[in-house]
Design a binder for these strands. Structure first.
Length: 1010
RNA sequence: GCUCAAGUGGCGGAAUUGGUAGACGCGCCGGAUUCAAAAUCCGGUUCUUCGGAGUGCGGGUUCGAUUCCCGCCUUGAGUACCA
């Protein structure tokens, strides 16, 4: 009987599915353990070998925990709303729901063949109305809430309305929009309903407001900050511009401090926490208010304008020599004097024309303009010129700064450029060449009451004095901005929102879900409305509480519905809670289920979600916690980022040249051999030939005439041009050369091999040595992201077919540490595959089962117990790569020991089963079990089997090990020294010298210093 | 620029309360088996002038450093005029 992995794996996958082996129960005597993967977006390309890496790791952990006696929840689902399905729909007219369904089928088939222990009965799909019903429901809860800074939590909007009605808004301490005018209870009660709604919108946790958003014209939608990388869209790399639009936003800024604090109590990687901390961007300082001087010389400023700034350095307030406003600042047009008007307007216009990206790219050019206005220093009462400059960002702080050139390099450069004075307020510091920002290394000078104080003292004092004047206070600022929540897309969750008199109204929860309407086309309408503007049945009837035809809109009983849809992160912000009770139609999950499973014990996924999904989902969880809807405010206790598996792209240079004489140029040409399959799909190939500066397809197309047949599978091209580099040569081509193993050979050997290589000269297949040219060939590999467009994708289906799922699982783990980026090399899989065959042979011989009741040998017990110890430690440390090698060592040793004992071979299967579940299950049943191995108890480690009677001591001289010596374990230092010093090799090493010192650590090492 | 992570054979990587550097696997070399090949098995494989040297580079602490400290270099990731 040989190891027939295809048959075995299919058999047990079927068995697990039929017996619902991995179905988790919401009630159990066992302790719970929740292992979660970031659910995939089901793309049309299917899985490549990089995708399952994290799933394999989490599956090993989940299976291990089952062996440990835990009730394990290990679910999987699909984040199935998203852009690619929609773009495909635009191109083909196919409904995204259909392509999504097909893609999910492919994903499911691919996932199933790897043998994951998912509880599929709990599957979720974010695009399923039974799921997004609850996404809509949570949205409504956010709308109906405000953030109370006094209680530091979200509260029902009703409580706010009650306060407004009884005492106005003066005492309300809420996170809300800036610049809400104060009103009394009387005012409130006299406001119209619409006025009241407008005010409430400024407090709600999700709100509709006209804000500056990131608009991506190419994608036709707005993007959140985390969807923009280096000023272009994350998806597609399209330019992004700032634009004022009325959009839904999420008041995540309300949770900035709690999102920051919460990081301390969760076991996530430091780098990920660091990313989130940077993103939240807390800075502690003060807000300072500068009065604009009403008249300076001939200029008169009518109103008493104030410029508010935020600074982290209130201690430097006496160093202020000018102020700078962002060009977009609302005061610019109001305070600019007649004389400066032309210059300022020209500058504002020039800045507005520059895209975000240009401004980011060009940080060195200093530009600005003087407004002609002056502000008054709060303490000295001296006039301070007010400038505008694009180094001040409208979106951060107040969009204005107090400029302290001696303490800030940007202010310094600006001052130098425009010849503004640079007063020094630092004791013993020279600021004639650059600003001094090493705040802890000096004392404040020339600053009235701050003189002689250090940074900390001066900061405190300055804030105290500002507060006395009523012109400032201590303030903490966060970089975290509210997140734009609407997208001008079709394939997303519809909002449960209709409009009455322009004001948004929530549809009552009992009428959810509001299903995505059918549309003729998935593009924006001719009038520029989002795709839902194409829907004909998309209005809300408040009498029947149904979606009805748009033509019936009368604005009394039938109103227009929201045309935007929710962003991709909506559905993924709470899915981990839904798995706990995914079929519940009454609640997003029952209280019992939520209280039982509570939170995720282990979450595995990619680090690319650091400032997107992983931040938004924490925000929603905290909100749900505030509302008493979930029992914990952090949903994932531990999170691990799996590294990416990279593809190896083959690069190839072939230069065949003939030197006619020393002065003439080398005439060089390329040979390319590609597969016919590659050639026939030429128009689909997207690669780029760097040296020639043109697309691969275009290049090859141009050279059609010179293609000739190499053999039945390959085509040959010969032409006189320079060697080129492309990642898109079919891998099978390089494999021809791989037979030569050019890379691993020395230069000489490589040349020799090439001499024997077969090439095609255009007419005949010839050996390279028959070519009289001097031949230089270079083959190299470069590691890059695995991607369809780079032709370096390895499909797990093929691996499973050829080596089996257990081999795939083991190999993905064996590749290296889970969190590391590492290249895939299919050739290496023979190592783990060979291990499985060897393991099989330990159990099954040609005439059947080899396992018997023989007493295990001492050596075998030792091998087994050290394996238990190591594997257990490894799993708990997520060091899966090292346990694979531990298994290899164990099997090598047990094979050498000719171990046949059931006492060892049987529990060994339990150790292995998380990693290679199919072969473990098969052998388990062959040993006579009728139940799955999945819940068999993990073997107990017994240290007594590892006790040694002797130790092979390394004998070092000056720290260098020179030889080893086997000595009894119970020898003390003195006994060891006697034996070692008497040893002839010691004498040889010392060569007559007397050692200065002898270090002996019993049980560890001997070191002789001499 | 700032923040974080990482640099070990031909390759993936192993080893840290400081104690035998290179486990395990790939690849390569040699051998067995075979008419031959595949598969399988056995042996070797850091470099070396055979004294030794050696974990990115230069210092330091130590009896002893891949591991700790100081200063650099390189690579990768994140972030970027954040006041």
């Amino acid at each position: 009987m040989t190891y027939n992995f295809n048959e075995i794996e299919a058999k047990w996958q079927k068995y697990w599915a039929e017996n619902q082996t991995f179905k988790a129960d919401n009630k159990s005597e066992k302790p719970k353990f929740y292992v979660l993967d970031m659910f995939p977006y089901p793309s049309g390309a299917g899985l490549h070998v990089g995708h399952p890496l994290g799933y394999i790791a989490s599956d090993i952990y989940a299976r291990y925990k089952r062996h440990q006696g835990f009730n394990v929840l290990h679910p999987q689902g699909y984040d199935s709303f998203g852009l690619p399905a929609e773009q495909y729909a635009i191109q083909t007219g196919q409904h995204p729901a259909l392509t999504t369904e097909e893609n999910i089928k492919t994903y499911r088939r691919q996932l199933d063949q790897i043998g994951f222990s998912f509880d599929w009965s709990r599957e979720v799909r974010t695009s399923d109305p039974s799921y997004y019903k609850w996404t809509q429901w949570i949205f409504i809860q956010l709308f109906e809430s405000w953030y109370n800074n006094d209680t530091n939590k979200a509260e029902s909007i009703e409580t706010l309305i009650a306060v407004f009605a009884s005492e106005g808004n003066s005492k309300v301490n809420a996170v809300c929009d800036d610049a809400i005018a104060p009103f009394s209870a009387e005012d409130w009660n006299n406001y119209t309903s619409k006025e009241q709604q407008e005010i409430l919108l400024k407090y709600r946790l999700t709100y509709l407001a006209e804000t500056e958003v990131n608009w991506c014209p190419a994608l036709g939608t707005v993007l959140a900050n985390d969807e923009i990388i280096n000023g272009v869209s994350e998806r597609g790399g399209h330019p992004v511009i700032r634009k004022k639009m009325t959009q839904w936003s999420m008041r995540i800024s309300a949770y900035a401090e709690r999102l920051l604090q919460g990081l301390d109590k969760i076991d996530w990687t430091d780098s990920l926490k660091e990313s989130q901390r940077n993103w939240i961007g807390k800075s502690v300082g003060a807000s300072v208010s500068f009065n604009v001087i009403k008249s300076v010389s001939s200029v008169a400023v009518e109103t008493a304008y104030k410029i508010d700034v935020f600074t982290t350095r209130p201690d430097t307030i006496f160093g202020v020599s000018f102020m700078t406003l962002a060009p977009e600042h609302e005061l610019v047009s109001k305070i600019t004097t007649e004389a400066q008007k032309a210059e300022v307007e020209a500058y504002v216009l020039a800045t507005a024309k520059r895209s975000e990206r240009d401004r980011m790219a060009d940080v060195k050019t200093i530009s600005g303009a003087f407004t002609g206005a002056y502000a008054e220093h709060p303490f000295t009462k001296q006039p301070i010129p007010v400038w505008i400059g694009d180094y001040v960002l409208a979106g951060y702080g107040t969009g204005a700064v107090m400029s302290v050139p001696c303490g800030d390099q940007r202010d310094y450069d600006f001052a130098k450029h425009f010849n503004i004075e640079i007063p020094n307020i630092f004791e013993g510091v020279d600021v004639s060449k650059e600003a001094f920002s090493d705040k802890d290394k000096t004392f404040i000078a020339n600053s009235d009451f701050l003189n002689g104080l250090n940074y900390k003292e001066a900061t405190k004092k300055a804030i105290e004095e500002l507060e006395k004047l009523g012109q400032g206070e201590g303030k903490t600022n966060y970089r975290l901005r509210d997140a734009v929540f609407s997208r001008q897309r079709y394939w997303g969750e519809p909002f449960p929102v209709y409009y009455v008199d322009g004001m948004p109204q929530m549809i009552a929860a009992e009428h959810l879900p509001i299903k995505l309407p059918e549309v003729e086309k998935y593009l924006p309408t001719e009038t520029g409305e989002p795709p839902l503007g194409n829907a004909t049945v998309w209005a809300w009837c408040t009498e029947t509480n149904q979606v009805v035809s748009n033509s019936k809109i009368n604005n009394t009983t039938i109103h227009p519905l929201e045309l935007n849809t929710m962003p991709g992160w909506a559905g993924s912000s709470w899915y981990f809670n839904r798995y706990m009770d995914s079929s519940n139609t009454e609640e997003f999950a029952s209280k019992e289920a939520l209280n039982y499973w509570k939170d995720v014990d282990l979450y595995i996924g990619g680090s690319e979600h650091a400032t997107g999904h992983l931040l938004y989902s924490r925000f929603w969880q905290k909100f749900l916690f505030d509302k008493g809807l979930v029992p914990v405010d952090e949903y994932a206790k531990k999170l691990i980022n799996q590294g990416m598996i990279l593809g190896e792209s083959a690069f190839l240079y072939i230069i065949e040249g003939r030197l006619t004489n020393e002065t003439e140029d080398v005439s060089a040409f390329c040979q390319i051999i590609i597969s016919k399959e590659f050639y026939s799909n030429l128009e689909k190939k997207e690669g780029y030939i760097e040296e020639l500066g043109e697309p691969l397809a275009k290049f090859l197309d141009k050279e059609l005439g010179v293609f000739q047949e190499f053999n039945k599978n390959y085509i040959y091209l010969k032409k006189s041009f320079k060697a080129f580099k492309t990642s898109n040569i079919d891998v099978s081509y390089v494999n021809i050369h791989n037979e030569l193993d050019l890379l691993s050979l020395s230069e000489d050997k490589r040349y020799e091999r090439l001499q024997n290589a077969h090439f095609f000269d255009g007419n005949n297949v010839i050996q390279n040595k028959d070519i009289s040219f001097e031949t230089r060939i270079k083959v190299s590999r470069e590691v890059e992201k695995m991607s369809k467009s780079k032709y370096n994708v390895v499909n797990p289906d093929q691996i499973c077919e050829e080596y089996g799922a257990d081999s795939l699982r083991l190999y993905e783990m064996f590749l290296g540490p889970l969190e590391q980026y590492k290249p895939w090399n299919t050739a290496g899989i023979t190592g783990v595959h060979g291990f499985l065959k060897k393991l099989w042979k330990l159990y099954v011989g040609e005439n059947g089962l080899l396992v018997n009741d023989a007493e295990p040998s001492k050596d075998s017990l030792k091998t087994f117990h050290k394996t238990i110890k190591k594997v257990q430690e490894d799993i708990e440390n997520f060091s899966f790569n090292t346990s694979v090698s531990t298994f290899m060592i164990a099997v090598n040793e047990l094979t050498a020991q000719k171990c046949t004992s059931k006492d060892i071979l049987e529990p060994l299967l339990i150790l292995l089963s998380p990693y290679a579940p199919h072969i473990a299950e098969e052998l388990w049943h062959q040993l006579g079990y009728n139940e799955s191995i999945a819940t068999a108890a993990f073997p107990e480690f017994d240290a007594s089997h590892l006790v040694e009677s002797s130790k092979n001591y390394p004998i070092s001289f000056n720290g260098k090990m020179r030889f080893t010596l086997e000595l009894p374990m119970d020898f003390d230092a003195k006994q060891i020294e006697e034996v070692v010093m008497a040893h002839e090799k010691t004498k040889e090493q010392l060569a007559g010298r007397t050692p200065k010192k002898v270090i002996i650590v019993p049980g560890k090492i001997v070191n002789i210093v001499g």
